[in-house]
Simulated scan of single mutants.
Amino acid sequence: MGVSIYYTATRGTALTDEERDRVQDIVTESNEALFAGLNTKLAGWKAKNLVPAHMADAWEFCEGLHLYKPDENDPRVVLAGSSKVSHSECGMEPMYAQLDHYMRVALPRLRRALPDAEWRVHVDDIDLEWDEEDGQYTYPDAP
């Protein structure tokens, strides 16, 4: 079973060239940071059997931020993407490390780059909440 995080930003005006470049820079920088961080934990995860021994790089079990092509049918969508955060052969700790990066680092940076957009971020069917005070996404409070 796979788990993915989805992110969408909408607004009334298209991205400017400067915003598009900034978004791409953030995606590149965030993915580099994510994979560097995961790779530092890889040996420990292998030792705990949380990642298969044959995996030599985080790219083998993690996608990083992945933006979709612009939606020509809905010009209000200025940014949309998804990232698969689970792998059938990996344990929960690698998945949580990925989610933590997306919720606390990568997606907040994208949100700050497009502050006038309306954002929706969700893990499968669970909408994540934006915490203004901490500047990050959080899981909703349990009922």
Rank of each mutant, 00 (worst) to 15 (best):
G37M: 02
Y102V: 12
V105K: 03
A56E: 01
A43K: 14
A47Q: 15
E18H: 07
A80V: 09
Y68A: 13
A9E: 01
A53T: 13
E63K: 12
R112T: 14
E132Y: 12
V85L: 07
P75R: 06
A53I: 11
V77N: 05
E72T: 14
V27N: 07
G91V: 00
C90V: 04
Q136H: 03
W119N: 00
F35Q: 02
D100M: 08
D71R: 03
V123Y: 06
W59I: 10
A9P: 00
C62H: 01
V27F: 12
S82D: 08
D116F: 02
E18S: 14
L50Y: 04
H66Q: 11
D57K: 02
A117G: 02
S82E: 04
E93R: 07
Y96L: 14
G135A: 11
D134R: 15
D17L: 07
T40R: 15
M95I: 06
M55P: 00
T40Y: 15
P70Y: 01
D116I: 13
G37E: 08
E29H: 13
T16Y: 12
W45M: 05
N73P: 15
G12C: 03
D71Q: 10
R11S: 08
A47N: 15
A36V: 08
G12W: 04
L110W: 00
E72C: 12
Y102I: 03
D71P: 02
G135Y: 03
A80Q: 12
E132L: 12
P115N: 06
L128D: 00
D134G: 13
E32L: 12
F35L: 01
W119P: 03
A97M: 15
W45Q: 09
V85I: 10
A56D: 08
E129M: 14
S88R: 11
H66K: 15
A9G: 00
K41W: 05
P108M: 04
R109W: 07
V105C: 05
E89V: 02
A56F: 09
T13M: 12
Y7C: 06
G64D: 02
A43I: 13
H54T: 02
M103T: 02
H54K: 14
Q98E: 08
T8K: 02
S83R: 10
R109F: 10
A117C: 11
K41Q: 15
